[in-house]
Design a protein around this nucleic acid. Structure first.
Length: 467
RNA sequence: GCUCCCAUCGUCUAGUGGCCUAGGACACCACCCUCUCAAGGUGGCGGCACGGGUUCGAAUCCCGUUGGGAGUGCCA
């Protein structure tokens, strides 16, 4: 028995859709499990959607998801447009066998006829007119009588009465092949055994199966997985919804988190936790277990998954993953950045991060010449009756204490106790003086890392502003 | 309109006739921990769309209703 051949056949539309990502992942998981092959085919039949950089974008996105185009399990990319000759040959073969026929009606005429008769779609007008090819003539498939049964791995048995399927177009008036034809011919040509794709293709499937039959081949195993929807329960759309994989990547969503989350949409790993490594997914994933109903793509839950994966990283891995967010568009002057400082802070912020893009705002005060200014934070913390005294106490204490977080803390504690206050209160003005913000990494560790001179300078400067 | 698909907490799901007083996760709330914010811990809120069958027994099987969704192109 030959090893299974799965395929992923996106049309290049400029960015990579999260729904496509999930479909690709499903295919990839199956390929890994069964020792099969992942075939990438770019469906560029429509000439308007054809651009080399988009193809590269797809390959990059797949690579990010762990679908490595240099893997021996990976085949492609193939381009549908390159097979146009094959598609036409297949169509002509069908015509010669009487399984397809030419029709001279334009799309408008088809519509007009349907309206007239109260019917819908194409009515088979040219079925027996014996037309030959000609300018503007389209080749239509002669849908046979009877019933078409689609055996679907996730849906089960789905029946279609053939008389509800119109004689669809194979070749356009200009001779170019239509998607349905191209798709089937390519799948046959590439010896595809499993077609795993989104549910929106299910209504097309009987037509494709009919084509497989007519072309003399046994249909592949079908599997239609539910679509991803937005909060309104509508199919995710690039117009309204945030669907570009690249965008999530740019915001600091980890690939592992995205992969893990996407896999739990329509499916769940066994056990009490959904946070699982890819190896577990490969071992457990089965199409038969995939849910039948659409799943809401919940960005909040994605963020939660991301937080979990961020926390699972080793400190080294976290520092490594942070790099892109410390270099590009950052609030500080690049030459002020210090990798050693960041390495010391990293563990302190790792539990405080949702997406990696939140990192700069959490560490900026280390690399800015002066702490960021936030009027609200300032008035809120500096207007208390103990703020000035707290800063004075810190100035005095920090000048002489041993330089470690515990000692720094002891200085503030001494002041706090003497005033009968709480550390939670008194730390606020100090925090704003040093970091510019009311929230952030642990204060005393931050002061230790910032250094005695700079910390005291900031505290003194803040104290001066109060009067 | 027509064809097809679907229906368990707000959301993602577990559940394949008795183990279900329906389990977990996200979100939300409370408490604990605590130098802020997180993280972590503990607890709470909350669901089998409805109506009929079948069965000793239905979230699980069947039928209907209702409600969602997808498709309906000389797009892919």
């Amino acid at each position: 028995m030959d090893s299974p051949r799965y395929r992923f056949a996106p049309s290049p539309t400029g960015f990579f859709h999260v729904g496509g990502a999930r479909t690709a992942l499903y295919n990839w998981a199956l390929v890994q499990r069964t020792g099969g092959t992942f075939v990438l085919r770019i469906e560029d039949t429509d000439e308007s959607r054809n651009s080399p950089e988009w193809t590269q974008g797809i390959i990059d996105a797949l690579a990010w998801l762990g679908i490595d185009s240099s893997s021996p399990r990976f085949e492609g990319p193939y381009f549908q447009s390159a097979n146009a000759g094959l598609h036409r040959d297949a169509a002509m073969g069908l015509f010669e066998e009487g399984k397809a026929y030419w029709c001279d009606l334009t799309a408008e005429q088809v519509q007009a006829r349907a309206k007239e008769t109260g019917g819908q779609g194409y009515d088979g007008h040219s079925r027996d007119r014996g037309l030959g090819p000609g300018p503007g003539h389209v080749l239509r498939f002669r849908v046979p009588e009877g019933m078409t049964v689609v055996d679907d791995l996730v849906r089960g048995r789905v029946e279609f009465q053939n008389d509800t399927i119109e004689d669809f177009v194979l070749l356009r008036g200009n001779g170019s092949p239509m998607f349905l034809l191209a798709n089937v011919v390519d799948d046959i040509e590439m010896r595809i055994t499993h077609v795993v794709r989104a549910e929106e293709h299910l209504p097309n499937t009987p037509k494709q199966q009919l084509l497989w039959d007519a072309l003399g081949h046994a249909a592949p195993v079908w599997a239609h997985v539910p679509v991803l929807v937005n909060e309104q329960r509508k199919k995710l759309s690039k117009r309204r919804d945030k669907v570009a994989l690249e965008q999530y990547r740019a915001e600091g969503i980890l690939a592992d988190a995205m992969i893990n989350y996407l896999m739990t949409l329509g499916w769940a790993p066994a056990g009490d936790t959904e946070i699982v490594p890819w190896e577990r997914i490969v071992g457990d994933f089965r199409l038969e277990d995939v849910n039948h109903s659409p799943a809401f793509f919940d960005v909040k839950k994605l963020a939660a998954f991301n937080g979990d994966h961020v926390r699972m990283m080793s400190p080294e891995a976290f520092i490594e993953a942070s790099q892109p967010f410390l270099q590009g568009d950052v609030p500080w002057a690049h030459e002020r950045f210090d990798a050693g400082t960041f390495a010391r802070v990293a563990p302190l912020i790792q539990t405080r991060i949702g997406a990696l893009s939140e990192i700069p705002a959490m560490v900026d005060f280390f690399f800015l010449a002066d702490p960021p200014s936030d009027p609200d934070a300032w008035t809120k913390t500096m207007s208390s009756d103990f703020a000035a005294d707290a800063l004075d106490a810190m100035s005095a204490g920090l000048a002489a204490c041993p330089w470690d977080a515990e000692s720094v803390k002891a200085v503030l504690e001494a002041f706090t106790d003497a005033r009968g206050l709480k550390l939670g209160k008194t730390q606020a003005p100090v925090r704003v003086a040093v970091t510019g913000r009311t929230v952030g990494p642990p204060l005393f560790e931050s002061i230790q890392i910032l250094g005695r001179d700079e910390s005291m300078r900031r505290i003194t400067a803040a104290r001066a502003r109060i009067d």
